Amino acid sequence: MTTRLERALTRSAAAAGAPFAVERHDIVEWRSATFAGDRHRLVASATSSERLDRWLARIETLDLAVPGHVIADLKIATCERVGDVTRFRIDGLTVVT
């Protein structure tokens, strides 16, 4: 199942000329005393390029539309390059609005 966050990320990357393939997306429900949402761990890979590097460098400041949610946190947790392939993990937290 593709999530709203996954769709928003793939659209943003494609628009930046840095399409990627999702390999795995783990989601765990998260709750605090006042908020509810999900923690995300998205593992993906793409062809290495300057456009991908620029998109990954901006991940924390991307303005992504995720209907019904606010992105409370988004970061690159790991990133490795092997040959012409970049594999990375995006960690995020979405809060239900």
Rank of each mutant, 00 (worst) to 15 (best):
T2M: 08
T3D: 09
T3G: 15
L5P: 02
E6A: 14
E6M: 14
R7L: 12
R7I: 05
A8S: 13
A8L: 07
A8Y: 03
L9V: 08
L9G: 09
R11P: 00
S12W: 10
S12V: 01
A13W: 00
A13C: 10
A13T: 02
A14T: 10
A14N: 03
A16W: 01
G17D: 09
G17P: 11
A18F: 04
A18I: 04
A18L: 05
P19M: 09
P19R: 10
P19I: 06
P19N: 11
P19S: 11
F20M: 09
A21K: 12
A21Q: 13
V22F: 08
V22P: 06
E23W: 03
E23Y: 01
E23T: 09
R24W: 00
R24L: 10
H25W: 08
D26T: 13
D26I: 05
D26V: 10
I27C: 09
I27K: 09
I27G: 04
V28I: 08
V28C: 04
E29P: 15
W30G: 06
R31D: 12
R31Q: 15
R31C: 10
S32A: 13
S32R: 12
A33Y: 00
A33E: 11
T34P: 00
T34C: 01
T34S: 12
F35G: 02
F35S: 14
A36R: 14
G37W: 03
G37T: 08
D38F: 12
D38L: 10
R39Y: 11
R39L: 15
R41C: 08
R41G: 09
L42D: 04
L42G: 06
V43T: 13
A44H: 06
S45T: 11
A46Q: 07
A46N: 06
A46P: 04
A46G: 06
A46L: 04
S48N: 13
S48Y: 04
S48P: 01
S48E: 14
S48Q: 13
S49P: 08
S49R: 01
S49K: 04
E50S: 13
R51C: 02
R51W: 00
R51I: 00
R51S: 11
L52Q: 10
L52P: 03
D53W: 02
R54W: 00
W55Q: 01
W55A: 02
W55T: 01
L56G: 03
L56E: 09
A57R: 15
A57H: 11
